[in-house]
Design a binder for these strands. Structure first.
Lengths: 254, 254
DNA sequence: CGTACGTTTGATCTTTCTCAATAATGGTGG
DNA sequence: CCACCATTATTGAGAAAGATCAAACGTACG
């Protein structure tokens, strides 16, 4: 029973998020917590998965930040999403036999590993957990769709504003930031790979957003000084995040 | 029982694809086919879902082609994926309460509608079907990730070559094309919105691919005249499609 | 047979990239 | 605690891919 005590608290955010849309019974939750798990601290820059890996376990990010990435044949990198505490990293590795992208830590992090087979079996045995997994996967896909739009059809200014809005809202939904004030755990180079720009241009855009009074920046700390305007510039609507509660109203009120 | 006869054959490709990775028992398959379904013919340009819709049913594309799209606040469109016969259009609408993107038909099509609640209930009652749904959703997400890379980190030439490769391989996996010869059911404007380019530039790139002997084009018909070279230009690897069978070997042999 | 839509082509313009150099910053060992 | 090194951030100047604008040409089809 020791395993329980080790992981129950760290998984709180994850379990809460998993149940956001359809609560699990206490048996379901117990069954989840009874899974074999391993808790690990890893340094910034560590890979949780590499492209081409044959996955053996699934990873949950308990504390810290990570990002998904793919690299083209010419060596340029595209960041596909940023993972925040409480995110499941590896539902794809639960069922797909080879990893199609890599996940790398942005900061020193605490992660939980669960053997792939154990999770597979659990989902078959407890359909409600399967439904929660589908839910979570669908939301991730929705975020990815918006990411395509961002990279594909917005100019540099809107792209950067958008990624900032998304990050802030996701953090706030997990209680990890408030009032548009947060630590952005990425270098400008990483921001560039997330927005499909160059680091140089990211720098210029960030400065111009600051010059126009939309954000305030002290190194990696970001403070939204004009949510409304930033949201406008970003063409941001939180609908695609499928968060519970009011739609854009909530944002407008910030 | 009449319902069965109407939809069993049309759903063949869909059911086969759904089971590609983990076969369903005959009870599972029967339970699926026993769902209430409606078969519809719709014209090109019809919307299967609109952004913001509250979904009431889920859609399977039996015959014909469609695409997913989002539109920015400034009115530019991003196409997110192309749906081919046998694709489930609407697993997201099975669990998400509001549609975050639209799906529009490229051609006159045959679609099957299944009430959302019936599918939800089925997935809870038949966990193996839930697993198949997760599988299918994960593969869709993988394709979307590659789409981000395509739009974000490849130049116009590679982007267009890549989308052609992807389309050809997916069609061939369903037995809908062979030897790199297929009908591309999109205008150059749609191709532009899929690759985040302008129609003018798409036109120029297509012409240059033809001039270099990589493809042959008669209106919308595409013929790959040099698979190997096109794949090279496209930076294409079929791994992300998570198709069964050999990896890139199969493509190389075409 | 004319109208609407899609394709093709040319000329010019703009955003963003590239290359290059300098300045901060943070972490590390002495 | 300080000097040093490796990252990261910032700035400038010039180049390029792709966008925009505009017009002509095909082709399908009502």
């Amino acid at each position: 029973m020791r395993g329980y005590q080790v992981v129950e608290y760290p998984l709180k955010a994850f379990l809460q998020d998993l149940q956001e849309h359809s609560p699990l019974s206490s048996e379901d939750e117990k069954a989840f917590l009874a899974l074999p798990m391993r808790l690990r601290h890893l340094d910034a820059g560590s890979y949780l998965v590499r492209e081409g890996d044959i996955p053996t376990h699934c990873c949950i990010l308990v504390d810290g930040y990570a990002f998904r990435q793919k690299v083209t044949g010419h060596g340029s990198r595209q960041i596909l999403s940023v993972c925040i505490p409480g995110d499941a990293i590896d539902f794809q590795n639960m069922f797909l036999d080879i990893s199609d992208h890599a996940v790398q830590l942005l900061t020193r992090s605490l992660v939980v590993d669960i053997p792939r087979e154990a999770l597979q079996e659990l989902v078959l045995r407890r359909p409600a957990i399967g439904v929660a997994v589908i839910h979570s996967t669908l939301i991730e896909a929705s975020i990815l769709r918006e990411w395509v739009v961002n990279v594909g059809r917005r100019d540099a200014r809107a792209r950067i504003a958008h990624i900032l809005c998304e990050f802030a809202v996701r953090l706030e939904a997990r209680g990890l930031a408030s009032r548009g004030n947060f630590e952005l755990p990425m270098t400008q180079e990483q921001l560039a790979d997330a927005t499909s720009l160059t680091p140089v241009h990211v720098n210029r855009v960030l400065k111009s957003l600051q010059a126009e009074g939309l954000i305030n920046r002290q190194r990696r700390n970001i403070q939204f000084t004009d949510w409304r305007a930033l949201q406008e510039v970003a063409d941001f609507s939180r609908r695609y995040l499928h968060l519970p509660g009011e739609d854009d109203v909530a944002v407008a009120a910030m």
